[in-house]
């Protein structure tokens, strides 16, 4: 016990004795399991060697499309570009109606009304980044107002960023309070909290941030903004999936996992499906609990799907640019 005492054991250890937003003891008492980094990387590498063939591959490709958050987060996003993306989201392959629609379209708040109109009466949800994305360092009132604005404009899901500035300097309470307040501002919309794992440094930090975000009320925890070099990797996905498993075991609450950034190939996508399926079980392999945030992944998945159909290797140029 004394050997391990510097490690923060429970979420309540991170928080100030009196939380202004109030945390139920049962939730604050959630344990934070330390991460065995070597074991984690080995396990993740092992899961990524699994190969899927024929009908399993077809099922994985279809699932990858169903859980995809088709994303465009660029300064050059125009309403027309978002409309085109929404059309693709509803019917990913214009020539093949059997391809299911994606889970959601993820855009900047300003473009939420455009997406909401383009996706009206479709099963595709509108997701918006908000809360000072990607750094999360806009003034707090501005961030909160942005979240509320996005929801009012029609966002079904809101992706906010963890305040890494607060988290990394040990002001866990502040990071927690912001997420809890954001959850309230979301109302009925789903809240995804982006941890930006590439900036957290260690697996233990990722685990800690995951637990903090989940206890604060996140419906989903998400790896990355996609705006920095390091993004989702198999060990990070596994680390976060294990945190979600811990949370579910201890509180019974099922939190979703969204992996984003750098997922470009169908093979990467099914590696993540394997990691989540093996760690959290098949009940997590649904759009309600698992998402892949990506912009160029869809093309590769459609290419592989097409290869599976007629046996011909395809040409990337034949699939859309975005």
């Amino acid at each position: 016990m004394s050997l391990l005492s510097p490690i923060l054991y429970r979420v309540s250890d991170l928080l100030a004795a009196e939380s202004p937003t109030g945390v139920a003891d049962a939730v604050a008492g959630v344990r934070i399991t330390p991460v065995d980094a070597v074991g984690l990387e080995q396990r993740a590498a092992g899961l990524c060697t699994r190969s899927l063939k024929t009908s399993s591959k077809a099922a994985a490709l279809e699932l990858a499309i169903r859980v995809m958050d088709l994303t465009t987060l660029e300064g050059a996003d125009t309403p027309e570009r978002v409309q085109a993306l929404c059309a693709r989201a509803r019917r990913p392959d214009a020539a093949d109606w059997s391809v299911p629609p994606v889970a959601a379209v993820c855009v900047y708040p300003e473009l939420v009304p455009v997406a909401a109109e383009a996706l009206a009466e479709s099963p595709v949800a509108v997701a918006s980044v908000a809360g000072g994305f990607p750094a999360g360092l806009a003034p707090w009132e501005v961030r909160l107002a942005e979240i509320a604005w996005a929801v009012a404009a029609g966002a079904d899901e809101v992706d906010i960023v963890l305040n890494r500035s607060a988290f990394l300097s040990g002001r866990y309470q502040k990071a927690y309070d912001e997420i809890a307040a954001a959850k309230q501002a979301c109302g009925s919309a789903h809240l995804k909290v982006i941890l930006e794992t590439g900036e957290l440094g260690a697996y233990d930090q990722i685990r800690r941030a995951s637990m903090l975000a989940m206890v604060a009320g996140a419906d989903f925890i998400k790896t990355s903004t996609g705006k920095i070099g390091t993004s989702a990797t198999p060990p990070i996905a596994l680390c976060m999936a294990e945190a979600i498993r811990d949370m579910a075991e201890q509180t019974g609450r099922a939190v979703g996992l969204k992996l984003a950034g750098g997922i470009r190939t169908a093979k990467q996508a099914w590696h993540y499906l394997v990691i989540v399926g093996e760690t959290l079980g098949p009940e997590w392999l649904t759009p309600e609990r698992f998402r892949l945030g990506a912009s160029s992944l869809l093309n590769d998945v459609l290419m592989q799907r097409s290869k599976l159909g007629d046996g011909c290797y395809q040409r990337r140029e034949d699939f859309s640019v975005d």
Binding site: G311, C312, Y313
Partner: peptide, 8 residues
Amino acid sequence: PPLARHVA
């Protein structure tokens, strides 16, 4: 055959 059928 795979070379001949390759679209690219």
